[in-house]
């Protein structure tokens, strides 16, 4: 088990290094720079600005400087937010993104798995088609359509939830003050969770149907085991394996979804910083966020690999 974990870790570390290098050279090799927009600056001022951000040095030297600093957790100063460092920006953005991301993944897992099991146990009945139809809609209607529609419905028409602010306002916050600070996150979390709910539901259903056809399930039923125990003790355990392995891509999906959702709901999270940084060529900001996001996804994949080794006896753990 330990060697397996170490091996996986040995792959994860170079992956992160690869991501950092690829993003660094992609951004710097492209024509144009962050100070193109300020055309009326004096040439000397631009030179000084470039020197301040190390942009006047040869590319490879910049790369080494960056790697050295990044390894110590220093992602440098931001270019568009001139009085703040990237680390400070990340420190303000990360909690917002983590909150909606973790809540969304939790809801998606809970609802998606329940819907999948429910549907699989009623395969080809009318209710199965209804549930899967709902799931299909969740895949067909992207979050950037859902989010504005929900805002219109719950924010503008019913005035239940706040729009584009982290202040708890609207009908729901007044009716149930206990919810307090959670209220502004409700819509973003739902918008973020819905596509993942749909994917997880379809995945669970497919896997469960496959498992329920297996011989050992028939054996369990034949020896008179209660149906509840057959389903929960034997079928669900094996049926959830594909869902576990989907957790990695799910995190990637949540992370990319967060970019859109944060932009729509104007939440000050990592995704919004990323888009602003990318559009304005704020190299340090974009790189810092890519590193954090990639680290999150890689870490999740690592956890999934280890979990898989524990859950699935067929995976050779010491291999």
């Amino acid at each position: 088990m330990l060697t397996f974990a170490l091996k996986r870790l040995a792959i994860a570390a170079p992956t992160l290094f690869f991501v950092v290098s690829l993003s660094f050279f992609l951004m710097h090799l492209a024509p144009g720079g962050p100070f193109d927009a300020d055309a009326n600056l004096e040439p000397q001022v631009i030179e000084n600005l470039k020197a301040a951000y190390d942009l006047d040095k040869p590319l490879f030297q910049q790369y080494l400087i960056y790697l050295g600093k990044a390894a110590q957790g220093n992602f440098g100063p931001s270019i568009i937010y001139q009085d703040r460092t990237v680390s400070q920006l990340i420190a303000t953005g990360l909690p917002v993104s983590l909150r909606i991301g973790l809540a969304a993944i939790f809801i998606a897992g809970l609802l998606g798995i329940s819907m999948g099991i429910f549907s699989a146990l009623r395969q080809n009945q009318r209710i199965d088609y209804v549930v899967m139809g709902v799931a299909m809609t969740g895949i067909a209607v992207p979050s950037f359509v859902l989010a504005p529609l929900m805002t219109l419905l719950f924010g503008v028409i019913f005035r239940l939830l706040p729009i584009a602010t982290l202040e708890p306002s609207g009908g729901l916050a007044r009716a149930v003050p206990a919810l307090g600070p959670m209220v502004p996150y409700i819509l973003p979390v739902i918008a973020l969770a819905i596509p993942q709910i749909a994917i997880i539901a379809r995945l669970t259903r497919g896997a469960m149907i496959e498992v329920l056809r297996q011989n050992y399930i028939r054996t369990a039923r034949a020896k008179g085991m209660p149906e509840k125990r057959v389903v929960w003790r034997h079928a669900v355990q094996a049926g959830l394996l594909p869902v576990v392995s989907y957790l990695g891509p799910a995190i990637a999906g949540i992370v990319t979804g967060a970019v859109v959702v944060e932009s729509i709901f104007q939440l000050p999270g990592m995704g919004r910083f990323f888009i602003q940084g990318a559009i304005n060529r704020d190299y340090p900001l974009v790189l810092g966020i890519v590193i954090i996001f990639a680290a999150a996804v890689i870490l999740m994949n690592l956890i999934v690999d280890l979990l898989y080794g524990v859950l699935d006896p067929k995976v050779k753990v010491d291999g």
């Binding site: 792959i11 994860a12 170079p14 992956t15 690869f18 991501v19 690829l22 993003s23 992609l26 951004m27 492209a30 144009g32 990695g248 990637a252 992370v255 990319t256 970019v259 990323f274 888009i275 990318a278 559009i279 060529r281 974009v286 890519v290 996001f293 990639a294 996804v297 890689i298 994949n301």
Partner: peptide, 23 residues
Amino acid sequence: MRFVDVLYALPLLFFIIILVTVF
């Protein structure tokens, strides 16, 4: 296939965004 595994573990949409914004 190891290389594919490595790429698989990344939020690739970010690379599309970087590609599109810088080029």
